[in-house]
């Protein structure tokens, strides 16, 4: 009886390197649960430093996964981040790829 086919290494999905970074993954996951979030809220939830958080959010913005809006509220600067449709799709694809990889890691 032929053995069931398992995914070969060449067929395994690649994980999106932009999302794969832990902090960027955490940020996208947080933003997926809300409509928009302030920089200070993201910092409070992730415990990241201002510099690191800003750098990772910039990478996500450059990849088109996050949109930024800067405005003044009662003369105080406010930076709001929102997940884009592309970001939502990328996160969904990443989760599916993770699950497929986990499945093959168990079978392997």
């Amino acid at each position: 009886m032929p053995e069931p086919e398992t995914e070969t290494m060449t067929e395994l999905p690649e994980l999106n390197p932009v999302i794969h970074g832990k902090l960027r993954l955490a940020l996208l996951s947080l933003l997926s649960a809300v409509e928009e979030a302030e920089f200070t809220w993201l910092r409070a939830k992730t415990g990241a430093t201002d510099g690191n958080l800003g750098a990772q959010l910039l990478k996500l913005e450059e990849a088109g996964y996050v949109a930024v809006e800067k405005k003044f509220v009662l003369r105080k600067p406010q930076t709001l981040y929102r997940m884009t449709q592309a970001g939502r799709q990328a996160l969904t694809d990443y989760v599916q790829a993770l699950k497929r990889l986990l499945g093959s890691a168990i079978d392997g």
Binding site: L25, S29, L30, S32, A33, V34, A37, K45, V95, L98
Partner: peptide, 20 residues
């Protein structure tokens, strides 16, 4: 590899819960 991947999935779940 499995541990690393599982940790990533757990991170996603916990962050979504935090966001909500």
């Amino acid at each position: 590899a499995r541990q690393e991947l599982t940790a990533r999935l757990n991170l996603i779940e916990s962050m979504i819960a935090e966001g909500r």
